[in-house]
């Protein structure tokens, strides 16, 4: 869910930039260190970024035909962690604004905050907690992607509500209003996206599971266990 260009007034678009820039800067710092350790990671990150973009350029099979951006970021958060996903997300959001007219330039800060930072962080935390608790792998991926997507949508509603507080009732009322109006599309969409992300992992594990082992997402023991249950 991208906030369109020009939608956020006055101090708010600058505030979201101010909140996003430190996180992205930290992501860049992590990225630099990672590249120094192992230069082979740069092409991999690049293709991951392109993958996120291409996923978002394809329309999801859903009622509204909305874009599927969070699918890619949820995937990237699980593969590379939230700090690097923030950098990838920023680049992809800029391309989406310039190539597909999704989102905008002044609202880039707000979009990075909701889609590049909060969503992936939520997805990553759920993924880590789920893995620790030894739940079913696909259920974890589904939950991580769906809840990460919902977190994105809640934050976007909050961004809009803060910028446009309702006159009687203030921010809480307008937050409820924005959240309700976007819930119509976002709640079913997030479930669909969660299902797709889980299916993507299923196919990857079946066809070429060693890729995930190479990224450090799954240990080999875990991989063969999932394969055993899936077969």
């Amino acid at each position: 869910m991208h906030v369109m260009e020009g939608f956020l007034p006055g101090p708010w678009w600058q505030i979201w930039f101010a909140l996003s820039i430190p996180v992205v800067a930290y992501g860049i710092y992590r990225l630099d260190r990672l590249i120094k350790e192992n230069r082979g990671i740069l092409p991999l990150l690049a293709v991951a970024g392109a993958f996120i973009f291409v996923l978002s350029a394809l329309k999801l099979p859903s009622v509204t035909g909305s874009c599927s951006h969070p699918t890619g970021t949820g995937l990237a958060a699980i593969l590379f962690g939230p700090a690097i996903t923030a950098v990838l997300g920023t680049i992809v959001l800029l391309y989406q604004a310039l190539f597909l007219a999704h989102g905008g330039l002044t609202t880039l800060g707000a979009n990075v905050f909701s889609m590049g930072i909060v969503g992936p962080v939520v997805a990553y935390v759920i993924y880590k907690v789920g893995m620790r608790m030894n739940l079913n792998f696909y259920a974890i991926v589904f939950l991580a992607a769906t809840l990460g997507d919902w977190a994105t949508y809640v934050v976007t509603s909050l961004e809009l509500a803060l910028a446009f507080p309702a006159d009687p009732g203030g921010i809480v009322t307008s937050f409820k209003a924005f959240a309700t109006i976007f819930a119509l599309t976002q709640i079913p969409l997030a479930i669909i996206e969660g299902a797709i992300t889980a299916l993507i992992f299923k196919y990857i594990i079946q066809v070429k599971g060693d890729v995930l082992a190479g990224c450090g997402v799954l240990s080999n023991a875990r991989l063969s266990k999932i394969r055993g249950t899936a077969a």
């Binding site: 996923l55 394809l58 299916l199 993507i200 992992f201 299923k202 196919y203 066809v207």
Partner: peptide, 10 residues
Amino acid sequence: IAMLASTLFI
């Protein structure tokens, strides 16, 4: 679409 995305990823 999941099959497409996973093939693309690999």
